[in-house]
Amino acid sequence: MITVENLVKKFGPKAAVNDVSFTVQRGEVLGFLGPNGAGKSTTMRMITGYMPPTSGRVTIGGHDVVEDSIAAKRLVGYLPESAPSYPDMTVEGFLSWTAEMRGLMGNARIDAIRRVSGLCFLDGVLQQSVDTLSKGYRHRTCLAQALIHDPDVLILDEPTDGLDPNQKHEVRQLIKNMGKNKVIVFSTHILEEVEACCSRAIIIDRGQIVANGTPDELKARSDFSGTVTLRVHGVAGETVRTKLSNVAAAGKVTVAGDAAYVNARVFPRNRAISGELANAVARVVASEGWSFDELHTEEGRLDDVFRSITMPDTAKSGA
């Protein structure tokens, strides 16, 4: 549905987006991750046809966004980063205007306004002018605008920015539900959002794609993926380390803690996640008779992966 080929955008000599390629199919929710200034918004602006690329090509539903821009733009609903809207209009007036721009007339327009105001919880403020609304409502007004023509493709630049936790949850549910039969690309720097609603995530850094995979695949790249964490009390740290190091499947063992508790982390010898290492550790705990209150296998955390990928020099030292 969306094909991005070797996309480059230069501002003067500096490349904000440098040779980015990916495709997104119908039914996929693609999370676009990256530090601030990585080129997320610039990439989205080129996909929506707002910004012409320096080189490379974007097609949406087979239509080139530069050559055949009108046909491509028809398929897309876009929520820009700052969620702009016209402050002098009422919410209903603004939605009505966007519906008309999208070619919806008469009853179709009234139905569309009703549908999106329900989806985005705007029913109570339809008659208010946009400049009297709080940030969250303005944000949802702009989101409603992107949904008004029930587009096949949704490009959402930080869709949950400025929302309270309940609204964030609702918008994530909305994205997840709509993602079943649409193409959704959304950018965020909130990592749990990616786990909550993406079928795939791309991490972009300094204009280039540095990772592309499902959230689980990305998490597996974490240094801590597959490690077993154990918390025991009443045992000396050194004893714990020695005993656990004797486990066949164990690699490195780190131990931290104070007089009351010892936190041990056992790294697997090979990185496949399985219950095997945890079982082996549990047997040690049982045979030594330690009392413990935590024992689990880490799946890996996205923020570790994110940091180790986008800050390669400093991240690995933290734990």
Binding site: T48, K73, P80
Partner: peptide, 14 residues
């Protein structure tokens, strides 16, 4: 200034 330019020019219009 308000960013609506981005909205306006990503509508299916010339």
């Amino acid at each position: 200034r308000s960013g609506t330019l981005e909205l306006l020019l990503t509508m299916p219009i010339e």
